[in-house]
Amino acid sequence: MTGPHTEVVVLDIEGTTGSLTYVRDVLFPYARRELAGWFTRHAQESRVRQVAEDVRTELDRPDLDTDGVVAALAAWSDADVKAAPLKTVQGWIWAEGYASGALHGHVYPEVPAALRAWKAAGVRVVIYSSGSAAAQLDWFRHTAYGDLSPLLDGYFDLRSAGSKTDPASYRTLAGAVGAHPGRLLFLSDAAAELDAAVQAGWHAVGVRREGDPRGPAVPRHRTVATLDPLLPGPSSASRPQETPASPESPQSHEVSPP
């Protein structure tokens, strides 16, 4: 159960509230397929020109042309590099996919009720993921359970908070939400991220979904298989799960290794 002094719960997405498989098998390939065409269509927009400059800066290649920028983004995508310019562009591409109905954000069946339980208890819930804040918002706005974004209080990414394996990022995030580190709880499937949060004075709990080939426990951390054991109020046995509005069941996406 969330401790009586917990003010803010900070949630990871992949492997924690949503499936790794959906991200890796659906979202990433979708953005990769659309990347070149999307960038060409939007190349003259100020936001896209700024991303192009960010790529040149990151590569120390001020002379890189648009084709070179797209090639760099594609290479980062193929290598699963968590580069902020790539995450930003992926988020924009996904936004169009969500708007068209080609994509939806995956969440596990107990997540909507968990978010409602925390909100009812006065606990703020924010998201901290390597995907852009805009992509996070779109993810929770377009789930099979409807729009869950009203249940969330903020979104943090690599630009706004920093690397998820750096304790300084968690100190930054604590300041941003205005909470003492000891009143923050972080949930993630990655031991290195949980380690960093603990080093910053946070509480942290690992999440490993059933069937995860990495095993049932996150090394060095208390681990749960669902969010239910961490919730205030009724037990998981008496807490109803919601039914997805779409015909595709979120349970169809099993967790895969990173």
Rank of each mutant, 00 (worst) to 15 (best):
H5S: 15
E7K: 15
E7V: 14
I13H: 04
I13R: 08
E14V: 11
L20T: 09
R24G: 04
D25T: 13
V26I: 12
L27M: 11
F28S: 06
F28E: 06
R33I: 01
E34P: 01
A36I: 12
W38Y: 15
W38Q: 06
T40C: 11
R41V: 06
A43V: 12
E45Q: 13
R49Y: 13
Q50R: 15
Q50I: 06
E53D: 15
D54H: 10
E58V: 11
D65N: 14
D65Q: 12
D65I: 09
D65Y: 09
V69E: 04
A71P: 01
W76D: 14
S77K: 11
A79N: 13
A83N: 14
A83H: 13
A84D: 11
P85D: 08
L86W: 10
L86M: 13
V89L: 13
V89W: 05
I93K: 05
W94T: 08
E96V: 07
Y98A: 03
A102M: 06
H104R: 12
G105Q: 00
G105A: 12
V107K: 01
Y108S: 12
E110M: 09
V111H: 01
V111I: 11
P112W: 02
L115T: 00
L115Q: 00
R116T: 08
R116K: 11
R116G: 09
R116D: 12
A117N: 06
V126S: 09
S129M: 12
S130F: 08
S132Q: 05
A133D: 03
A134R: 05
A135R: 03
Q136Y: 12
Q136E: 05
L137A: 15
L137Q: 15
W139R: 04
W139A: 04
F140K: 07
Y145A: 07
D147P: 00
D147C: 06
S149V: 04
S149E: 05
S149Q: 02
G154E: 01
Y155V: 09
F156Q: 03
F156A: 09
D157R: 09
L158Q: 08
S160L: 09
S160G: 07
S163F: 08
T165Y: 02
D166L: 15
P167L: 10
S169M: 07
Y170M: 02
Y170C: 04
G175E: 12
V177N: 02
G178F: 01
G178Y: 01
R183A: 14
L184K: 00
L185W: 00
L185K: 00
S188M: 01
A192V: 04
V198A: 14
G201S: 10
E210I: 10
E210V: 07
D212M: 09
R214L: 15
A217Y: 10
V218G: 02
R220Y: 03
T223A: 05
T223W: 01
T223M: 01
T226N: 13
D228A: 11
P232M: 12
E242F: 02
E242Q: 12
E242L: 14
T243H: 07
T243Y: 03
P244I: 04
A245N: 06
S246F: 09
S246M: 12
S249V: 03
Q251A: 15
E254D: 06
P258S: 10
